[in-house]
């Protein structure tokens, strides 16, 4: 289970410094920040812009372009349910609906107790055994309602 640190600019600057010397460092920095804090807050943008000698607009444009980067802290666990064609052909839409109902959130939302964030994903490359889902970095395939319920239980525990 991921354990996120509370946002701290000094810690963020340390992380940025570790990655800033590689070519095209923006994405590696954003990934590293999200790995530690669980999201990339607005306050991180001027720090990155400064370190890479690019404008804040460039950093902001980059953060907001990519679906991966969150602007708010996520729940303790993140459950991604695949909504792409292969999973659609195998009951994926019904599973997504079930997950939304059971958790009481829409796609992209976090449960009121901050335990689970539910996100859509467009393909996990497990289409040979659709439908598929991912809990944090663990993958699950050949899901049915029963296995999804186990997964939801695990996510909420």
């Amino acid at each position: 289970m991921p354990k996120y640190e509370t946002w701290a600019p000094e810690r963020a600057s340390e992380i940025i410094a570790q990655h800033q010397d590689q070519k095209g460092a923006t994405l590696p920095i954003l990934h590293a920040l999200q790995e530690v804090f669980g999201y990339v807050p607005l306050a991180a943008e001027p720090l990155i812009a400064d370190a890479l000698n690019i404008t804040r607009a460039e950093v902001h444009g980059c953060v907001t372009f990519y679906h991966d980067f969150r602007r708010e802290p996520p729940g303790r666990r993140t459950l991604k349910i695949c909504l792409a064609e292969s999973c659609q052909a195998s009951g994926g839409r019904a599973l997504a609906k079930r997950a939304k109902e059971k958790l009481g959130v829409e796609m992209g939302g976090t449960t009121a107790d901050a335990r689970v964030t539910l996100e859509p994903v467009y393909c996990l490359g497990l289409c040979h055994s659709s439908p598929a889902a991912m809990l944090d970095k663990d993958v699950y395939a050949a899901l049915d309602a029963e296995r999804l319920d186990e997964l939801l239980k695990e996510a909420q525990s």
Binding site: G24, L27, H31, G61, F65, H67, D68, Y122
Partner: peptide, 26 residues
Amino acid sequence: VREGAGAYVCGEETSLLDSVEGKRGE
């Protein structure tokens, strides 16, 4: 290895190059 960030369009070769360069994947 460089890690993408959830943008399908970065499978298009020129937007992939921009993404490796640290920009929006346009």
